[in-house]
Design a protein around this nucleic acid. Structure first.
Lengths: 104, 104
DNA sequence: ACACAGCGTTAGCCTACACTTACCGTTAGT
DNA sequence: ACTAACGGTAAGTGTAGGCTAACGCTGTGT
């Protein structure tokens, strides 16, 4: 329960989302990512650390470079949290919509 | 594109998530929510404003009270953003996994 | 061995924002 | 008309966290 939450908060940051989207399109090194973003390389490095801790990316040493790619695991955790809403909620909601919520 | 993002960032806050979860379980007034949370009523009111702007909740006047409930719309927006990953990514990923990402 | 390239880390700054207190408007009841 | 209940808003405070600059470490090539 605390993990989905972490992944969610992680993707709340715009820069981190940008990094994540780029990795979704293509695994990349830190330098490559920093090159296409309006922030410095250390900033990207810090974000990658957070993404990694949230289970959203994995890294692999490749000579002196370090290639990052998306980790499906973190994605799954997030989906688990949301599922309690789109499944249950969407029709439970339709049910309640025109009810006057008289329960206090 | 900017809207899913807003809903995501909105749910990144723990208090806001708590409010959202309670509303998912049962539409409530501001006072009811504040009662079950470790923050004051104005804080809840502010969060509800943010949730509303993100399309995650709707409100309806009910006498002097104001009942809030979940808005499926915001949920849908979020899902739209994530779909580009769980659909596309999960097998695009499996494809790339043991490829040595030699593309620079 | 030496030089260079690619990353991670630390220290410090600065902005965003969650929270509280105080105040005001609105609606319902008597 | 008066009063009390319910909520939204404004002002001010404190803190989490995103960013940069500077430094050190590791691996590669010559």
């Amino acid at each position: 329960m605390a993990n989905q939450v972490k992944a969610l908060a992680t993707l709340a940051d715009p820069t981190r989302r940008a990094i994540f989207e780029r990795l979704a399109a293509k695994p990349s090194s830190v330098g490559e990512l920093a090159n296409g973003l309006p922030v410095t390389r250390p900033a990207v490095s810090q974000h990658l650390k957070v993404l990694k801790e949230a289970g959203l990316v994995t890294d692999a040493a490749q000579g002196t470079r370090r290639v990052y790619r998306i980790d499906p695991h973190g994605l799954g955790e997030i989906r688990k949290w949301f599922d309690q809403f789109w499944d249950r909620q969407l029709d439970a909601f339709a049910d309640e919509v025109d009810r006057d919520s008289k329960d206090t």
